[in-house]
Design a protein around this nucleic acid. Structure first.
Lengths: 348, 348
DNA sequence: ATGTTTCTCGAAAACGTTTTCGAAGCCTAT
DNA sequence: ATAGGCTTCGAAAACGTTTTCGAGAAACAT
């Protein structure tokens, strides 16, 4: 015999009483509660999750869906660990646990999510790598499952937390303009991630504000990898009118860009101003130091966890004043990669 | 009404029949099976996981326990994603799913694992960041739960898959000796990870083979981060007898090491030979190119998944010829950071 | 026609827990 | 002494599924 029944027999009381004692219900004598707790600790009893969640219809678990990638690391990789950490520590405070659900690179993300929803071993979801009009959002909304997206999908009837891509783009343009630049390019992700749209719109808004016309050929799509940064550099150098500055929306491209510029005899940060996106240890050794933005990813995870809690029916009223959407700020860390512009001869 | 009962009523047959039809049991008319499958697809029915696993005592889920870290990324971060990918795609072939269980940085790993074991929503575990005599191994063995460790714990009564740290260390020493070096240092992780012991033992074995005495001050502990690499460099330069070469057991330290050596006027790869550990995009831009080792992490994940499958009672006989332990090889990718040694004047 | 096998299905138990509801005991106020 | 309230506990139902076992029908062999 195992489980709560064994514990009950061992204490010579009913299983109902044991259950109530363990779950801190009110109609239990403090004396017997203490006995039960002690015996449970001794025998190492922990309630079976299947039985519990079958009865309660809840699993006390939330799933964080990510897309694991096959080979080359992208930005997201070392991004996520710190976020997990933040989310998990918030959830734990409410006796919830986080599990990460990695969608393999050879499976369709929507299929995967439907499968996970169907299996029902999580009460709520956090989805990431959000795309514009992401079909997963519609699916979760229809299924009525609490969730929050890390990244905006464009529609606003759901919760999300997202980095301030628009703000960063805008602020970067402002900074470059203030330093004398007008030919400012922007590097955008090649994939359909919505952050590309956001970054672009912030970029265009700032240009407009400064009266600088938008050149479509200055919005360059590139892979979010070291190699992507390298090809970005060559693309940049062969533009009809060579820009004097570039803003990155990814952290991993910086090193490759530096390399390809250097190889072409263009000194990064001097002949070409560069503002990176997220600060990272991988960029810390670049010379000249990359101007970029910093933020605590663990805190971002914490925020994500809190928004999620607000969506859980059991905690809804406790968190009802919490905003359902949150733009996560980043802070400029000035480097030397975007100095005041020297006089330039027109390179048209 | 929901669940299998609704489906049964809709088809006007018993729930037992529905269940058997969905689970491909033999005593079902092919005709009715087709009807059931179709109706299930139409109504979007998927079996509730709690009910199923309560009855079967199995969850068809395996948990991959990692230690999420708070802030600074370590080696492990972008290491894992590819591994997840491999594991998940192997498991999926057997109708199993992978969930990643991130142990937050502010929780004790053993406590966390016991909690996860207790909750029982996974049938088996993969544990990582294995330490020497890891208490988690003993715990899982005692609990009788199938598991495989990514990384050796030292004891051999359990399954593991591990990178060939000893081999890499040995091969690196051989290579450096062949190029004229005798004063060879080694950088080891500061933490209690067992890989440090393995790497050191390979290093010492090779030294012995070449008749080079082992100098304890040449085995340098350092953090597995960019900053760790930086301090490693300064430690290296202030040794009583400066080594002419160093072998790294971590991928992330290389950039920091290059930087600190350069700042001290010691040209990395020329005045100091360097052999890195795992090839990574972050090191690809280093100049001179870092000699290091490469391997497919996705394939490593695949191997990990297969060893795990062999541990599951339901699949044991199908995989019984599979070795329970596996040393995962890495392949040398020659760079220019460890050239033939030039004549040196003794720096003692 | 009868006995025997084969095929298909349904009734019911079982998994381990939580939770409702009523009962028993005790105390207090009348 | 009796009625009522409070405290503490136990019996039993319920969650959704799988699986065992037996029943009935059909097919087959004698």
């Amino acid at each position: 015999m195992k489980g709560i029944r064994a514990l009950a027999r061992h204490l010579d009381i009913s299983i109902g009483t044991v259950s109530k004692a363990l779950n801190n219900r009110f109609d239990i004598n403090p004396e017997t509660r203490k006995r039960v707790l002690q015996a449970a600790a001794e025998l190492g009893y922990v309630a079976n999750q299947s039985g519990r969640s079958l009865r309660q219809g809840t699993t006390r678990t939330v799933g964080f869906v990510i897309e694991s990638n096959q080979a080359s690391p992208t930005d997201s990789d070392n991004f996520f660990m710190a976020v997990f950490d933040g989310v998990q520590s918030v959830l734990r405070g409410h006796h919830l646990d986080l599990v990460v659900l990695p969608c393999a690179s050879d499976e369709d993300p929507v299929d995967y999510l439907t499968r996970m929803v169907g299996r029902g071993f999580v009460d709520a979801f956090i989805i990431s790598a959000t795309r514009k009009k992401d079909p997963r959002v519609a699916m979760l909304l229809k299924a009525g499952i609490p969730f929050v997206a890390l990244g905006r999908s464009g529609e606003d009837q759901h919760c999300w937390v997202d980095l301030d891509f628009e703000g960063v783009a805008e602020q970067s343009v402002d900074r470059l303009v203030a330093r004398g630049h007008t030919d400012i390019a922007v590097a955008l992700p090649a994939t359909g991630l919505n952050l590309g749209n956001l970054f672009l719109s912030g970029y265009r808004r700032a240009l407009k504000r400064h009266g600088i016309p938008y050149r479509p050929d200055y919005a360059i799509r590139s892979e979010s990898s070291d190699r992507g940064g390298y090809t970005l550099g060559t693309t940049l150098l062969f533009l009809e009118r060579r820009p004097s500055a570039i803003i990155l929306s990814y952290e991993l491209v910086a090193a490759g860009l530096y390399r390809s510029l250097s190889e072409a005899g263009v000194r990064p940060g001097r002949d070409m101003a560069i503002i990176g996106f997220r600060e990272s240890s991988q960029n810390r050794h670049l010379s000249p130091h990359l101007t970029s933005y910093s933020t605590s990813l663990r805190d971002l995870g914490t925020a994500l966890g809190e928004v999620l809690l607000s969506q859980l029916p059991s905690l809804a009223e406790h968190y009802k004043d919490l905003p359902r959407q949150k733009v996560w700020p980043l802070e400029l860390v000035p480097g030397e990669s975007d100095p005041q512009m020297r006089k330039r001869k027109d390179a048209s």
